[in-house]
Design a protein around this nucleic acid. Sequence first.
DNA 1: CAATGAAGTTGAACACGTTCAAAAGGAGGA
DNA 2: TCCTCCTTTTGAACGTGTTCAACTTCATTG
Lengths: 231, 231
Amino acid sequence: MPKAIKTKKSEETRRRIFDSALALFRKRGFDETTMRDIASEADVALGAAYYYFDSKDAIVMAFYQRTQDELVPLVTEALSHTHSFKQRLAAVIRIKLDYCAPNRRLMAALATHIDPRHPLSPFSEQTRAIRDADTHFFQRALEGSDVRVSEDLALHLPRLLWLYQMGLLLFWVYDRSPRQWRTTQLFEKTLSIVTKLVRFSSFPLLRPVRKTVAELLELIYGSQETSEALA
Amino acid sequence: MPKAIKTKKSEETRRRIFDSALALFRKRGFDETTMRDIASEADVALGAAYYYFDSKDAIVMAFYQRTQDELVPLVTEALSHTHSFKQRLAAVIRIKLDYCAPNRRLMAALATHIDPRHPLSPFSEQTRAIRDADTHFFQRALEGSDVRVSEDLALHLPRLLWLYQMGLLLFWVYDRSPRQWRTTQLFEKTLSIVTKLVRFSSFPLLRPVRKTVAELLELIYGSQETSEALA
DNA sequence: CAATGAAGTTGAACACGTTCAAAAGGAGGA
DNA sequence: TCCTCCTTTTGAACGTGTTCAACTTCATTG
């Protein structure tokens, strides 16, 4: 990875490589695009592509990062319009889906990675910053809304909502129905359910259930932290 | 793929390649083992490995198949001992975990694939036969047990239990805690919950909930069938 | 006993992602 | 002008999974 780059020229080159890569990924797909294609499209030698990006995957990582950066203002804007939790949750997810729509094919190639040790996995250490920022969207959707979240779930609920969104995204990525109408359906139906569950979740009566869920999640997330520490 | 093979010699060679591959996968891991290593270990030329197996992945597929075949009698035996649903469910899952234990590292390399289009994915068309056989285990666990399953869930419940088991397996595969005690904990805690949920699920009062769940599952599985048809 | 042809075997060759030593460029100073 | 040093650029080379045309083996047949 090149260190802090100042010179105009090299920034230009890096951008050209990145843009060429993305254009090719979109047109032909990730696996079908070779690093030689990318370099040639960007009018540089093969080695130059590797001078600016550690690997083919690193280009994708840059893409993840840019996506996340560009989503922030969009989500912020959307969240300023309503206090209804359901609408806020829907907005966060819909913005992401819409934004990703042109890259659906590319994302399908990437969603392959579930292994938390794979850099591109949504569960990896390398994507942690992006994941945290993403989870924060859901925290904000909750905080400014009309639902009250009981303390013992405050930590976990954003993560659960993030997981819900990842599942939806995964379904969408592989959804071959015309215009992905199945995803739309699944989204609508599950959104109501999730919203209701979130509302119910803070009922005093459900305290023992919350405790059980919290225990489970600590087991699961605790394990992740351990493996990250060991990695 | 070679057609029906009868000659002893070739069967011997195939087995030698398969065994060498598995030994190396276990010792060094999947990615770290090359086809040249396998061929050399089996004392054949590189091409011979490809004569018997279409690809490196195909060796893994053969491993999946053998695993499934060998599990059948073990599960059958275990299911003959009790009618308690909880114990039956636990037995099916525990047998699988125990059986897979020596291959945990190999399975971690494989669990990478979530893309239903990837041949090795547990959701792919290529693994359908194995998946169906596997799902059948849970159907049997239900059928011979002390729980009554309402008709509208009879179709889906085995699939849901299979999914539960896949999640557990996934967790196990990446569980770095000593002797995977976290998985054990997760197993115990979730088993109770799942068992209770299955019991509750047939309460007459919950009919509308069942209907909603069934609708969702049909949406999800229906989509899969569509994409398979298009594939 | 050849001759035939299917089954089995070989290793060179290909395209890929990636590495790396070497060359080229260019900014700043003597 | 020339030297120095860092950044940028180059393309050959490596190891990988995979393909393939050529070769060998060997049971069956005329």
